[in-house]
Design a protein around this nucleic acid. Sequence first.
DNA 1: AAGACAGGCAACCGCGCAATG
DNA 2: GCATTGCGCGGTTGCCTGTCT
Length: 382
Amino acid sequence: MGRSPCCDKIGLKKGPWTPEEDQKLLAYIEEHGHGSWRALPSKAGLQRCGKSCRLRWTNYLRPDIKRGKFSLQEEQTIIQLHALLGNRWSAIATHLPKRTDNEIKNYWNTHLKKRLAKMGIDPVTHKPKNDAILTSNDGESKNAANLSHMAQWESARLEAEARLVRQSKLRAGSSNSIQAQNSEFASTSSQLQKPVVPARCLDVLKAWNGGVWSAGGGGGGGELGSPTSTLSSAAGVGESSAALLEFVGNSFGSCEDSGMMKEESEEEWKRAAEYRSEEIRDPIPFMPGLQETSSFPSEWASESMRGNSEHVPSGNFVEKFTDLLLSTSSGDRPFSEDGGESDNGSGSGGGGGSGDYYEDNKNYWNSILNLVNSSPSHSPIF
DNA sequence: AAGACAGGCAACCGCGCAATG
DNA sequence: GCATTGCGCGGTTGCCTGTCT
C-alpha cells in the first residue's frame, strides 16, 4: 500500500560497496549527519538507495561497531536471550554493545544454531531434542508459559526502551547541529540503536536466577548456593520479591563494563566448562549483580504484549505479573510452596504445586547452561 | 594445481509500524 | 480516517574465501 519503490529505481547501484562509496557516505554523515536516508544518497553523490546507505552505515561504517570474534559471554548472552526473545535480533543486539543485529543474526545462523543442534538442543525451542519425551505435557506447558511471561516482559521493556531512544533522537534531531550529531556518534552512537538507559544484559535471566531459582527455599535455593539465594522460607518472600522488583526496572553495568568484551574463546569456554562442571552452584556470577531499581512504567505494558514470536505465546503477562507481585507482597510465596523441603534441585520430587512449576523452569535453565558450558572444550563443536 | 564444496558474511528484499499530511 | 512516506526489522540471497578431494 502506498509504498514507493526504493532500490528498484533505474540507475541505482546494488551489490558490494566500494571504498569510494564508503568514503563518500562516511564523509557526508560526518559532516551533515543522516537526517533523511531517502535524500541522503543524492546529496552525498551516491548512486544508491537510502535504504542501502542506512544498512551500510548501521552494519558496517558506524564508528562504534566492534567487529571480530564474539566472546564467550557474548555467545552466552546471545544464546540465552534467543531462548527468551526468539529471533528478535534487534532486541538481542541492545544487550550486546557494539554489535549489530545483522552481525548477531549471522553469527547465530552460522555458528550458534549449529552448535546447539550438535549438542542436541533444539535451537528454536532451546530445549533438548528429547525433552518432549522426558517432560510431561503439563510440565512443558508450565515451562513454556513461564518463559513466555518473562519473554513478554522483556519484549515490552525493550520496546519501551526503543521508544525512549526514538524520543531522545527526536529531541536531539531537532537540532541540526553537526557537532551535536557528530558528538552523538562519537560518544553515544551505540545508543542510536540501543536504549538511552545503560546497556544491560540478561535482565530476565538475572531475575530468573535471583528471583526464581533462589526461591526454592532451603532446598533448591540452597543447592544453588548463591550468597543472594540463601533464603529462608520467611526471608525468601521479601528477597525474592525484591529481586523481581529489581528485575522490573533493573539497570546495571553494561556488559562491556562487566568484562563482556573479553577476547575469546576456546580458553573461555574451557574455563567456563570447568567452572560450571564443578557445580552449578550459583548462576549469578554469570550475571552482574542487581543494583538499581526503578519504577514500572505503565506504558511498558500498554503495548507490545502481542505475541510476536513463537517463543512468546500470547497471554496476559502483565496481569499475571501483577498477581505475582500482589501475592508476593501479601505474603504468599509465589515461587515455592514446599519451602525448604525440596530435594537437591535436580528434580521435582515434591508433589505438584507451584514448587514444581518453578523447579521445572529452574531445571530447564540449568540444563541449558549445563549443556552449553559442559561441552568438552576439545569438542569439534567448539 | 584445479575443481568442487561448504561456510561465513555483506547486502538485498519485503513487510510492518509509526509518523505525517 | 485514509493515503503516503520513511524507517527498522527479520528472512533470505548470493558472493567471496577457505578447505577438501
